[in-house]
């Protein structure tokens, strides 16, 4: 069991704000349209897999809430989807050691992005009657299913692997 730490909470909050800030600055890249890269989601997954505790739930929810406040259109949609994803990550992390299994991690990442997109899409269409051309199965969404896990693996998985290899090398 990981204990509560103010430092970690601060880092989590910083990560949540930074991810949203960078995501906002990157938005001209995808013409202010559906982003292929969802940094707040990646940060949520990363934090939840690193610290699979109740704190990660709060972190995911806060990240989503900040994303909602930044976007300003529908408060609660991203908070809801990130919360569900964080809960799923924590639950799965307890059952299997995902960090070292690249294919399993890649498949799970696709699942997380799909769930985040699905929950967000459902909430947006059901509550706000917003209709996306092509629905959830539009090319932008499929592209985000590939790009997000790839970026995640490059940013969060590979450096850790390199570090591990270095450690193993030292030991042997």
């Amino acid at each position: 069991m990981i204990r509560w730490s103010w430092k970690r909470a601060g880092v989590a909050l910083f990560l949540a704000f930074t991810a949203n800030g960078i995501q906002s600055l990157l938005s001209p890249l995808w013409h202010y349209s559906h982003p292929f890269l969802d940094l707040p989601l990646l940060v949520t997954i990363f934090y939840a897999s690193l610290y699979p505790t109740t704190g990660a739930l709060l972190m995911g929810w806060t990240t989503g809430l900040i994303q909602d406040i930044f976007s300003g259109n529908a408060l609660g949609i991203n908070a809801l989807s990130k919360l569900v994803v964080a809960y799923l990550v924590i639950t799965l992390e307890e059952k299997i050691e995902i960090q070292d299994l690249l294919p399993v991690q890649a498949a799970l990442l696709i699942l997380y992005v799909a769930i985040d997109g699905g929950v967000g899409y459902l909430a947006a269409t059901q509550f706000f009657q917003r209709s996306w051309q092509g629905g959830i199965f539009n090319p932008d969404f499929f592209l985000s299913l590939i790009i997000n896990p790839l970026i995640y693996l490059v940013i969060f998985h590979l450096p850790a692997r390199k570090k591990r290899r270095k450690l193993i090398g030292k030991g042997s």
Binding site: S24, Y32, P35, D38, S71, G72, N73
Partner: peptide
């Protein structure tokens, strides 16, 4: 001039 865009996939907006 724009100072930021929406980070959410569910809205196309700028600040």
């Amino acid at each position: 001039y724009p100072i930021g865009g929406s980070p959410s996939p569910w809205s196309n907006s700028i600040v």
